[in-house]
Amino acid sequence: MSAGLVGIAVIDILLFLFLVLIAIAIARLRNLFAIAMLAGVFSLLSAGLFVTLDAMDVAFTEAAVGAGISTVLMLGTLALTVREEKPVTHSPFLPLLVCAITGAALIYGTLDMPPFGAADNPVQTHVAPYYLEQTPVEIGIPNAVAAVLASYRGFDTLGEVVVVFTAAIAVLLLLGGGGRSGRHGKVAGERKKD
């Protein structure tokens, strides 16, 4: 048990250090193209971390959606807006203080968390055994994640589809339908700038 924990810890901490380095690089860089690329790398590395946590399906989705689609959307936005961030004028101490206090509160909260990776954690003792035992009987496929996603919790997935549909409609309304008023607004904005 302990040897397994140490083995996981080495890989976890290595991936985590990479993730933090990338996040800090994103914070410090001002070139938005580089930031978009680093965000893609961040997603890919977090997919690696998902694999160490046994979440293969999540890793696939994160790699495809986070590193793929998200980067494409980000680059599309950069093509329509700006490439360079302007320098920050205000002091970073207040945000740093807020983050430090929030982080300290959250870490204080984790002290009561059940130990990582134990088989008798509360999360493991309710519906999960049922899903794992009944999936071959009731659904007949080996992948328990797919069985829960599409069958046991199919309404969740329906809700997800509704959210994606709503977001797609909203994006179309913002970028497609509002084209004329957008150009009008742009003229007003430019005039204001001059």
């Binding site: 996981i8 979440a55 990776g117 088989a119 080996p142 994640v145």
Partner: peptide
Amino acid sequence: VSTGKIVGGTAPILT
């Protein structure tokens, strides 16, 4: 996701 991990366990693809 880390809350669902069991050390020594494997991905929930039934064998």
